[in-house]
Nucleic acid binder design. Structure first.
Lengths: 299, 299
DNA sequence: GGTGCTCATACGATCAACGTATAGCAATCT
DNA sequence: AGATTGCTATACGTTGATCGTATGAGCACC
């Protein structure tokens, strides 16, 4: 019974059901009928001898077994894609890439890399989700996760893209206004997630110096901090790439050229598995190349 | 057209064809008809848009694309098995495990581990191939490769099972016969693949001493060397596990207790991939456990 | 040159998966 | 509370893809 389904298709509809949290929704996505989806799910469960999805009339939830399968299914489907891609002579990529990136980086720096990539590959769609909270990689259907700082999930493959240099910047007006004042006593603009009221900077030799500051403004949004700094409200620690043009035209200046904040690693995480679809692989390379140019360690 | 085949089944028949080097042979194995196999292969080639197997009337050869696919296909099929196994509540393993082992180890030490495993799991079949020559892992359909010395293929996952201690042994008669003679001048029985006419031994401090010997016998078979040593023909370097019982009952004795040959690593290699069938995983564990008991570093 | 094997193609037959239609059910709306 | 809407599971007839059998063609070995 039901031994004639395409097993990969079964996994495909299962993943779709899990993502849409609905059988009929998945059917619409897949361009088929709801009974067909229902049958396929039943067939998969029969083959594995496990209930994957607990379904009430209005609700659909994955069982622990289903959750476990979800990651495996996604990986296998990716590998099949990779097999297909591998034998394509023309390198016209297609399909969709799902990326999760931190908001700040995702709406400014990396989006440029992504748009370049889409221009180069017209048939590629990118799902570009910007989120700062920790993600559960196994549950989200994500091909590529950009993250600042370490990646907590050790089932993922991690590639370090860069370690961004961070420096203290402010306007000349602001500095003139507080001339002669200790760095610690300056009006600081701090970024929530990475700094508290204690700021640590390193001199050329790498020895740390901590400053206990009372921030004039604290924000969880780097653009807000950036704007405030440009308005001359205070000084802030900013990544060099973020303020590179401002440093060039003098809008902002390097307040403490001999002091630097700790470099923040920017990582790229991928689901494990030996092969990935060509579009994912090439996208990662493109991001990496972009970082090598725009986030180079000595830039 | 032909979009209704089970893609994994397609891969399955492809692998079978590649292994049997024949369409009709694969058909016999799979319990189906030859035209069906022919159609499935054609369907797979159509889907990938590549010729996988060049077939004449009497000969069947894989194209480079086909060879490339072979490894990927095997991995994917293994992962599907793993998915199935993972959800089996009963831990009754089944299926067949293909193992390639060196002749000497495979016919004596490891075979015991394998038979134990088969007793524990009645529905598991083991293909037990003993070969000393280098194998092309990608081409052979092998789940688990036991090997002495390093594994040349870096696409494989390698686990070191043990580093076997090797010592110089001989009979008391043989020693008495050549009493007072230099170790170098003794009648040596050497094992081709690992020793030439220059033998290197290490003292307790680990400093090497080389001996230029003229072997009384050289063989590529450790059992031949072993028998010759037991007959008192000469002295030989033997792994401790191989002669453990002889050392206990005095049939052979440790000729140079302060000298040891270099420990030989025994490795277990697996095809890469994130998940393997439960039977493979458990077999590897069983082998590992067996080695920990019978090949422990200090034994 | 015959024989034995190979793989590819042609042709009905079968049967599994499809879509449509229906029943049952829960939550939300009126 | 009753009506409505959306959901999933089952029943049923149909379709069409895959199947096995039969056949054709080609190479190798005797």
């Amino acid at each position: 019974m039901s031994t004639r389904f395409d097993r990969l298709a079964l996994l495909e509809t299962f993943v779709r059901i899990a993502e849409r949290q609905s059988l009929s929704g998945a059917a619409r996505d897949l361009g088929t009928s709801q009974p067909s989806v229902s049958r396929q799910l039943a067939a998969l469960e029969n083959r594995l001898g496990v209930v994957l999805i607990r379904r009430t009339t209005h609700d659909v939830t994955l069982t622990p077994d289903g959750l476990e399968l979800l990651a495996d299914a996604r990986r296998m489907l990716g590998e099949w894609e990779a097999i297909k891609d591998r034998h394509r002579k023309d390198d016209a990529l297609m399909g969709t890439i799902r990326v999760i990136a931190p908001v700040a980086l995702g709406q400014s720096l990396f989006i440029k890399s992504a748009t370049h990539f889409m221009k180069d590959h017209p048939d590629v769609t990118i799902d570009w989700w910007l989120r700062d909270d920790a993600i559960r990689f196994a549950e989200e259907g994500c091909d590529c996760w950009l993250k600042i700082g370490s990646v907590p999930d050790d089932t993922l493959i991690v590639r370090e893209l860069a370690r961004v240099e961070r420096l203290v910047v402010g306007t000349t007006e602001c500095l003139a206004q507080h001339a002669g004042i200790d760095l610690e006593a300056m009006p600081w603009l701090t970024l929530g997630p990475f700094e508290g009221n204690r700021i640590e900077l390193f001199d050329e030799s790498g020895t740390p110096k901590t400053f206990a500051v009372t921030p004039k403004m604290a924000s969880d949004n780097i653009f807000a901090v950036y704007e405030a700094a440009k308005q001359g409200v205070g000084i802030a620690i900013m990544p060099r790439w973020f303020v590179a043009s401002d440093l060039e035209d003098g809008t902002l200046i390097d307040v403490a050229p001999n002091l630097r904040a700790a470099r923040l690693p920017v990582n790229l995480a991928l689901a494990s598995g030996t092969r990935r679809p060509a579009r994912v692989e090439q996208f990662c390379e493109a991001v990496q190349d972009y970082c090598d140019v725009h986030l180079r360690v000595d830039a």
